[in-house]
Write a protein that binds this DNA or RNA. Structure first.
Lengths: 143, 143
DNA sequence: AAATATTTGTATGTAGTACGTACAAATACG
DNA sequence: CGTATTTGTACGTACTACATACAAATATTT
């Protein structure tokens, strides 16, 4: 082996740190949620629809910072699993309102519990102050 | 519209903030690198091979926190574009050493410049202290 | 020295995420 | 009323990521 992993100037790139942190969180999340069969994005969608029944395509896309095509790919997959259903709006017949099915609600409840554990795993490495600081700094990137 | 984007308890999830920050960085990166035709992962691989010529599959996977299959998918794509080439190691004939081609080196140089601009965009929202703090906190997640 | 285990590279398949584009229907606006 | 915008749909493309199985080379154990 010509080089066994010495430091590289790549380490000083903030973007890479964010990507690696994201990857680590993603991996732990996937493990935690393997039995529920939900990804981060999927449970985010369920969560949002649970919070805002009647939301539509554009609402989800905006809330989750995704484009419409990506959003609908998620929604269609969840609909196929009968976790949500879609009913046309009466006031605006272009819109189709999303609601959780009872199975979707049950899965969301289990998902929220699992997210609690996941978040505990993630946040236990920070003090309360550090956590607040980290959230504040991260928000500046996407807000 | 039944709900126009009020706050949700989703906002208090650190994992989601990391994901959204990652998404924002990813989007800006993609714009910045559209003309170079390189993704974050791809330039990370080029960068690492530039820093450590002779590295092999496993070295890259470890350095970038990816599994071997993902790593090789990246390497193969870059090899197809003649940005790197692979030569069998003499000391260990299982290993195949990666090196940049001259075209790969040129592209890496341009990429490093573009990363400089990208990093400037990303970091200009933080003071020097905040930047150090953010890097320190992020590292705790994946290290 | 021989048998076994590990490492390394290869090849395939699946899934999720993300975006672009083009199209049709409904609504809003001038 | 005609036009522009919004909304949903239906394609297609690309990247990332992981699992698995297989072969070859090397390392380890007996």
């Amino acid at each position: 082996m010509p080089d066994s992993g010495g430091p590289s100037d790549l380490d000083s790139i903030l973007g890479l740190r964010i990507r690696r942190a994201h990857g680590a969180v993603q991996r732990h999340f996937a493990e935690q949620f393997a039995d529920l069969g939900l990804t981060q994005k999927q449970i985010s969608v369920l969560w949002l629809i649970g919070d805002r029944p009647g939301a539509a395509q554009t609402d989800l896309a905006r809330a989750l910072d995704m484009d419409r095509a990506t959003t609908m790919a998620l929604v269609h997959a969840l609909e196929k699993r009968r976790l949500l259903h879609r009913t046309p709006s009466q006031s605006d017949r272009r819109r189709i309102a999303f609601k959780l099915t009872s199975e979707g609600s049950r899965l969301l409840m289990r998902g929220k519990a699992a997210i609690g554990e996941h978040e505990a795993w993630l946040t236990r490495r920070f003090s309360r102050q550090e956590l607040a600081q980290l959230e504040r700094l991260l928000e500046r990137i996407y807000a």
